[in-house]
Simulated scan of single mutants.
Amino acid sequence: MRYTQDEFVPRLTRYRQLSTAEETLLDYFDELEIHPEHIEVTTCDSEYKDVMKKITEMVGIPKNYGLSPEEQEEEDRRKEEERKQKAAAEVAEKKRRNEAALAEMAAQYEEWQKNLSELKRQEYELLEAHALPLRNYLMKYVMPSLSEAMLDCCKIKPEDPVDFLAEYLLRNNQQEQQPA
């Protein structure tokens, strides 16, 4: 608790008095019966070949704790298989989405065709309703005169039937307009 600079030195001397044996790192290894080796390192060997040789003799050759070449090859094969499966799953998902989109488009097209046929039917009915008065007028006033003119045209067989019909209709129209 009291770690001031003035109190540090007395505490350190008290600690040294209480601990009778001087324990060092070397003492720890001696207890475990591991005896350190001393290796001279000189500056004249820049690549430290002698040092590395002595270490290799004492410890053994370096070990690779990674995968062996066979295991690495198997791992690569497994990863490639997983990648292929993912790619196949993505292709299948894309195909499913495309099929769903096509099905939706087909349903929309069917509905559009149904609406279009309904619209055509309604337009036809509307045109029929608008044409009814004109049809009644034609049937009442034009068709009797035109039918009579066409019968006379068939009997006489003129060179220019259109001109004959036009003159016939004009002549009969004038006769109907004059009071009798």
Rank of each mutant, 00 (worst) to 15 (best):
E74M: 06
Q122G: 04
K86E: 08
Q17H: 08
Q17D: 06
N136F: 10
M1N: 15
C44F: 11
P158C: 03
D6I: 07
L116M: 12
P158A: 03
D6L: 12
A89T: 00
Q108R: 10
L134K: 11
Y124T: 12
K155Q: 14
N173P: 04
P133S: 02
V9M: 13
R78S: 07
W112I: 01
S117E: 09
L134P: 02
E75R: 09
S19G: 04
V9C: 07
C154L: 14
I34N: 02
K84H: 03
E123C: 04
R171Y: 00
E167A: 13
T42K: 14
T13F: 12
Q108G: 07
K49A: 06
S68A: 04
Y109D: 11
Q177F: 10
D76T: 02
L67Y: 02
N173D: 05
L146K: 00
P158E: 00
E93A: 15
A131V: 03
E159T: 10
F8E: 13
A106D: 13
V142G: 00
Y168R: 10
L18P: 00
T43V: 08
N64F: 15
A180P: 13
D45V: 00
A89K: 07
F164V: 02
F29A: 01
L127S: 10
M150R: 06
Y109W: 11
Y124F: 03
L138N: 11
M58F: 08
K114E: 13
P36V: 02
L169T: 01
E57H: 05
M139K: 14
M143F: 13
P158V: 05
A88V: 04
E80W: 05
Q113F: 04
Y15G: 06
R16S: 05
S145K: 09
M105K: 14
S68K: 07
A129Y: 11
A21H: 08
E90L: 09
E167G: 10
A106V: 13
Q72V: 00
K155C: 13
R16C: 09
E22H: 00
G60D: 03
A21S: 10
K155R: 12
E111P: 03
M58K: 14
P161D: 07
P10H: 08
N136D: 09
D152G: 02
T43A: 09
A103T: 07
V59R: 08
P179I: 09
N172T: 10
E70V: 01
M143D: 15
K157G: 05
T42C: 14
E40Y: 08
I34F: 00
E167P: 02
P10D: 04
T20R: 08
A180V: 12
P133R: 04
I156F: 03
P62I: 10
N115D: 04
K120N: 08
E125Q: 13
Q85L: 14
K157P: 00
Q178K: 15
R121M: 06
S117M: 12
E111Y: 03
A180N: 09
K49C: 04
K95L: 09
T24H: 03
Y3F: 08
S147H: 05
E104S: 14
P179K: 08
L119A: 13
L18S: 05
R14C: 10
F8L: 15
F29L: 15
Y65S: 14
A92H: 08
E7G: 06
V51R: 02
C44T: 10
K54L: 06
E81C: 01
A107T: 07
K54E: 06
E22N: 04
E128S: 11
R2E: 12
P179N: 09
R77P: 01
A92K: 11
D27Y: 12
I55N: 02
